[in-house]
Design a protein around this nucleic acid. Structure first.
Lengths: 143, 143
DNA sequence: CAGGGCACTGAATAATCATTCAGTGCCCTT
DNA sequence: AAGGGCACTGAATGATTATTCAGTGCCCTG
């Protein structure tokens, strides 16, 4: 019995039903005529990059196609920055504030404690004044 | 100390570094002033739907926005079906065979053992003659 | 206020998973 | 053919995670 084939069967088994333990996988494989111990499955699972979720084992989604770059979004949507102490008020075209805010949130910059989005305004909250200045520079030159 | 806040901190901790055990999470949380035992974390992790991957704990990607329906793809790309024993030869516009094949693979129909895609032709392989007929009907009327 | 219900949590423990160590078979070189 | 190296695997065992059972605090109702 061949390793690559066994791993293929593992993928088939977990994609067609919810399975929560490796012993359970071993049983299903046995029914398919593929013998395997828990030890082997533990290794296979790591090699396949499978994840154990509350809904059972799952194949990890392929590395995200990742939409537009943050840099792109900034250059397209960010129209203005106004400073207010440790806060920055970012202006966008009407209706696009949440797009910009979501992109910033996803980037998870350490300079940025959080955002609040209105219609054409994003409030960007920095932890302090110095960081706010750094943040402003970074927004203007998204390396 | 509040549950929702603790769970938020868990998300923060796992998103900023690779963490492989719940005890490790407990340590990081302790540093943030959030006490929690492994027992509690096990429950939080289930509630948050986190997955344990070979690269550490991860938040599961939001339920996929799921592109065009298989039904849509079929109605748009599937131009013809020719039977050949237990095989079906599907025709598409030039260059679109792989799109159709990929969509069929993703659907993982039991009637369909596998596909092979050329440029404007997809070979759909059914396990036997009877199943091939069912498959053809299903392709034509994607319920 | 007494008592019931509910949400939350921890200690102990059961269940599950990962690693270590050793053994086998295969291929390749000498 | 002998011997070294490598890939693969299982048994035993260590490490991690999940569950059970019990305890606490809070709110609500009578």
């Amino acid at each position: 019995m061949n390793k690559a084939f066994r791993q293929g069967q593992i993928l088939k088994v977990i994609s067609s039903q919810q399975i929560h333990t490796q012993d359970e996988i071993a049983q299903k494989l046995a029914k398919l005529g593929v013998p395997a111990t828990q030890v082997t499955l533990s290794r296979d699972i790591r090699e396949l990059g499978l994840a154990k979720t509350p809904q059972g084992y799952r194949a990890m989604p392929a590395p995200a196609p990742s939409g537009p770059t943050l840099a792109n979004i900034l250059s397209e949507y960010l129209l203005d920055i106004r400073e207010a102490q440790h806060l920055l008020v970012l202006k966008t075209l009407p209706g696009h504030a949440s797009t910009l805010a979501a992109a910033l949130d996803r980037a998870a910059w350490p300079e940025l404690a959080g955002t609040l989005a209105g219609d054409d305004t994003v409030l960007a909250i920095a932890p302090d004044l110095a960081t706010a200045r750094k943040l402003k520079r970074r927004l203007l030159r998204p390396s």
